[in-house]
Design a protein around this nucleic acid. Structure first.
Lengths: 252, 252
DNA sequence: TCACCCATAACTGTATCCACTCTGGAGGTG
DNA sequence: CACCTCCAGAGTGGATACAGTTATGGGTGA
């Protein structure tokens, strides 16, 4: 399957600022990978992509380097880059780190959000309900992303970047989750509400517990879904992280 | 201060594989930044750097994009890139994440190292003692890095990449720590030993406790050292992370 | 002394060229 | 028929030149 065919139905590349074409290309390709339009294993040929996107190879190669640094594509010398896929094991450890980091982020953020930020979080929460009921999952994803980002907003720029990167990585597989378990929305929304209230009220412990349980639940469903086609092996890493966050290191 | 002068005393750029000049340039520049030879705020001019390193701008710009993705340099359109510096607050949150992630890594690795890996860790441990007594801090850093990496070796490729990135970021500031507190080597080495034994014996809880305490101690010294020139504000993020790892989320 | 302006320098993107490497198929060999 | 070798074409990586745009810094005038 050629790249031109794969992205044929999508919106084309937008370059709002011609001074940073490589950034636009990077964002565009990242979205293609995260959305699943470029499935794992897809070969990315520089010349073909440059022709399809109507940019030269120079900014394209810079975008490749950024994607490579994020772990989304592979890059071996003189070999075509490929979209990287995660197996169940890797996804388990990724989610374990995500559970841990976002829980820490929620704890560091608890009680520190401004009135303005709290209002934004509430708005995102309501937007999630609205878009879900309307079946507009694309907008739901945007609101969901914004909601989670606000609730870990005080953990420093570097850590925030990592959390975003992990969220993007795992978002590729959440799509599976959404399709398979589309009807337990209300319980997930209740989890979101619990996180929000704990962070709003400055209860760091509750924020950690709520965030950890929420993400661990997602992780279990996603990894299970991925394992349907392969031998399932559970989520040992996520379980370890969850136990660590809830009970501390005393319980081995 | 020009770049030529800053790196004049150092070894030049080595390009072992001419097929990946950009990777060599990336590694070289990263080392320069981490070592402090390029202090925060240093302007990086593409043309000048390309001339000094005897490479063209193409691989140089790819290296810049990778450094930017790692948060080591800033990149605004049509502006010179600058080496990014961390303030005490950002360093605190970075270390909080590092404490959390590496403790998780140690837990996931506990009891899973092969005999070969355990031997390598022991060798690195002894090398740290030898090089420290010999005053060869460059070699000590290499051994120390290797030691820490081995003890979190089973936490998945993505997380391992993050841990490495964080370690590099903070390594820039540990140098200060080494100079100021060079004489408590024995206690730090005891901490290293405690981590090693817990991981070797498969005691996940002890591994977490040992790793968390070790890194938190380093964090406090480093942040304190950084705050000498600025108003000190302690390490609230690291303290929160440490409490979370040791006691779980029940204690707020 | 300070504010402003302009020439210079620097960055970005594009295009093109060349060297090197890898891939995949044709053809030969056992 | 399976396997190997070899080679042409495709692909990547790097160097260089050029155009357009912007920041910078020093000189000038108030």
């Amino acid at each position: 399957m050629s790249i031109g065919e794969l992205i044929g139905g999508r919106d084309g590349l937008r370059i709002p600022d011609p001074r940073q074409t490589s950034v636009s290309v990077h964002t565009y390709l990242r979205d293609l990978i995260i959305s699943g339009d470029l499935p794992p294993g897809t070969q990315l040929k520089q010349a073909e992509l440059a022709r399809v996107l109507a940019v030269s190879r120079t900014p394209l190669r810079e975008a490749f380097r950024m994607l490579q640094e994020e772990g989304l594509i592979s890059a071996e010398p003189n070999q075509r880059s490929r979209v990287v896929g995660l197996d169940a094991e890797e996804l388990d450890s990724l989610y374990a780190a995500r559970v841990t980091l976002e829980s820490l982020g929620a704890r560091l953020t608890a009680g520190k959000l401004s009135r303005e930020e709290l209002r934004s979080a509430t708005a995102a929460f309501r937007e999630m309900e609205r878009t879900y009921k309307a079946g507009d999952m694309a907008s739901w994803t945007v609101a969901h992303r914004s909601f989670h980002r606000l609730l870990v907003g005080r953990c420093g720029a570097t850590v925030l970047r990592t959390i975003n990167s992990y969220a993007q990585q795992s978002e590729r597989y959440v799509r599976i989750d959404q399709n398979q378990h589309g009807n337990d929305f209300s319980s997930r929304q209740a989890e979101h509400q619990a996180i929000f209230e704990a962070v709003r009220d400055g209860d760091g412990g509750a924020a950690v517990a709520a965030m950890a349980n929420h993400l661990a639940g997602t992780a279990r469903r996603v990894v299970d879904g991925l394992s349907n086609r392969a031998p399932g092996h559970g989520t040992p890493c996520v379980d370890a992280a969850l136990s660590l966050l809830l009970n501390g290191c005393s319980t081995t």
